[in-house]
Simulated scan of single mutants.
Amino acid sequence: MDYDGKPLRKPAETGTWASIRETLKVGIQALLIALVVRTLLFQPFNIPSGSLVPTLLIGDYLFVSKYSYGYSKYSLPLSEYIPIQAEGRIWGADPKRGDIAVFKLPKDNSTDYIKRVIGLPGDKIQMIDGVLNINGKAVKRERIADYETTDPYGQPTKVPQYMETLPNGVVHRVIERDGDNGFWDKTELYTVPPGHFFMMGDNRDNSTDSRDLANVGYVPFANLVGRAEMIFFSIDEGTPAWQVWNWPAHVRWSRLFTTIH
């Protein structure tokens, strides 16, 4: 108390401290909202490899819907550091054949991979002379104009390109960089186990996917992170996205805000 018996009053906050506190409050709220959106709704990813060419290109940035297949341990940020061993999903919804999905690599349960869903539980999958076979039937493919790309030495080249029609009617493009004689163009017969999916890249001769049982193999349902929905940004390979002064010449403007299928 002061000399006349009245309680002392806390000095009013200065305008500077009030402004700082309000800024911190807004910042924390924004971070919490971003965390909720990233965990439950949409997560951004970028494409670092050419395994899904021509559908997705190196330098594409896309949104993945986290709710499409429900939620598992791997829907959470930094899931590899969470000590629980939960293998199920809540509000789970099976992916459809032809979806492009992000998943955690079964080999380490931490590396993000993105491929196309080709085989469902119980399916029998095989590549025969470059042609995808599902449950004993060759998947329809139609040769279209060659795809223009670069060879391993960076020189322009053209490679065979096809429109492939999956059994459920999903149509998408694939390329065969090595023709129909690539390493993974003739495979064993794979039988997809219950609760697992068979994933492949559209760049059939340049994709490490479920055909490689030692490095990828069958993908458990719990490992699915979400479904690729939309490209929100795209820039030429080798051009960092943060170099905004290069955007006018190197951003692939025609790919922005395009849906993925």
Rank of each mutant, 00 (worst) to 15 (best):
I90Q: 09
M127L: 05
E176H: 15
T165R: 13
E87K: 12
A86S: 13
R173V: 07
T111I: 10
E80T: 12
Y162N: 05
R173A: 13
Y162G: 04
Q126F: 07
L120R: 02
F103Q: 02
G122A: 12
I58E: 15
P77L: 02
E164K: 04
Y113C: 06
L120W: 02
Y69H: 04
L57H: 14
E176D: 14
R143M: 15
L132S: 00
D151G: 11
L78R: 14
V170W: 02
V174T: 10
D129N: 15
I175S: 00
T55V: 01
I125S: 01
D146H: 12
L76I: 14
S79K: 11
G119S: 00
Y153G: 11
G88Q: 06
T150P: 04
L105M: 12
R143Y: 12
N168A: 05
V117I: 09
T157R: 10
S68N: 14
I175L: 01
R116Q: 07
P83K: 10
S68F: 13
G88M: 05
A145M: 11
D146C: 11
G70Y: 02
A93C: 14
E164P: 03
R143L: 15
A145N: 14
V64K: 04
T157A: 14
R177P: 04
V131K: 03
P121C: 04
V53R: 14
I125W: 01
P54I: 02
V131W: 00
T165D: 07
L166N: 04
G122H: 09
P54E: 02
A93P: 08
S75I: 12
P156Y: 06
L62F: 08
E148F: 13
F103D: 03
K140G: 09
V102G: 13
L57P: 07
G136L: 03
I100M: 10
D151L: 09
E176K: 15
Q85G: 11
N135E: 02
S65Y: 12
G119E: 00
F63Y: 10
D129G: 09
Y69M: 03
P95I: 03
N109Y: 11
D146R: 15
M127P: 00
Y153H: 10
K158G: 09
A145F: 09
A101E: 10
Q161M: 13
V170R: 05
S75C: 12
G88W: 07
Q85K: 11
Y69E: 01
Q126R: 03
K115Y: 04
V53Y: 07
I144L: 08
V159K: 05
Y113Q: 08
R143W: 12
